[in-house]
Simulated assay, not measured.
Amino acid sequence: MTLGSLIGALIALAVLLLVWAVLIYNRLVARKQQTQEGWSGIDVQLKRRANLIPNLVETVKAYTAHERRTLESLTEMRRRALAAENAPAGTRAAVEERLGSALGHLFAVAENYPDLKASDSYLALQEELSDIEDHIQMARRYYNGTVRNLNTLIDSFPSTLIAQRFGFMKADYYEVDQAADRALPQLRLGDDGA
Score class of each variant (00 low, 15 high):
residue 45 Q to L: 03
residue 14 A to N: 11
residue 27 R to D: 08
residue 36 Q to F: 09
residue 93 A to V: 02
residue 75 T to Y: 06
residue 153 L to S: 12
residue 161 L to Q: 09
residue 86 N to I: 10
residue 82 L to F: 08
residue 66 H to V: 02
residue 20 W to T: 11
residue 108 A to Y: 08
residue 123 L to E: 12
residue 12 A to W: 12
residue 92 R to G: 07
residue 104 G to S: 11
residue 60 V to I: 04
residue 159 S to K: 03
residue 41 G to C: 02
residue 16 L to I: 12
residue 173 Y to F: 15
residue 63 Y to R: 08
residue 120 D to E: 15
residue 174 Y to R: 09
residue 106 L to S: 02
residue 145 G to P: 03
residue 29 V to R: 01
residue 78 R to Q: 05
residue 20 W to G: 10
residue 10 L to K: 07
residue 112 N to F: 04
residue 182 R to W: 07
residue 165 R to N: 11
residue 173 Y to M: 08
residue 154 I to W: 04
residue 115 D to A: 13
residue 55 N to V: 06
residue 81 A to G: 02
residue 65 A to K: 15
residue 17 L to C: 13
residue 46 L to Y: 03
residue 124 A to D: 14
residue 168 F to Q: 00
residue 44 V to T: 12
residue 106 L to R: 04
residue 40 S to P: 09
residue 182 R to L: 09
residue 34 Q to V: 05
residue 77 M to P: 01
residue 78 R to F: 01
residue 78 R to M: 03
residue 26 N to T: 03
residue 145 G to I: 05
residue 122 Y to N: 08
residue 151 N to S: 10
residue 182 R to F: 07
residue 151 N to G: 10
residue 6 L to N: 12
residue 161 L to H: 06
residue 125 L to W: 06
residue 129 L to C: 04
residue 89 A to C: 04
residue 191 D to M: 11
residue 165 R to A: 13
residue 49 R to A: 01
residue 64 T to I: 02
residue 43 D to R: 10
residue 79 R to M: 02
residue 115 D to Y: 02
residue 120 D to V: 13
residue 154 I to D: 07
residue 129 L to M: 15
residue 111 E to T: 06
residue 57 V to H: 11
residue 172 D to P: 07
residue 111 E to F: 06
residue 9 A to Y: 15
residue 185 P to F: 04
residue 30 A to Q: 11
residue 173 Y to D: 03
residue 186 Q to H: 15
residue 192 D to F: 13
residue 64 T to C: 08
residue 156 S to I: 03
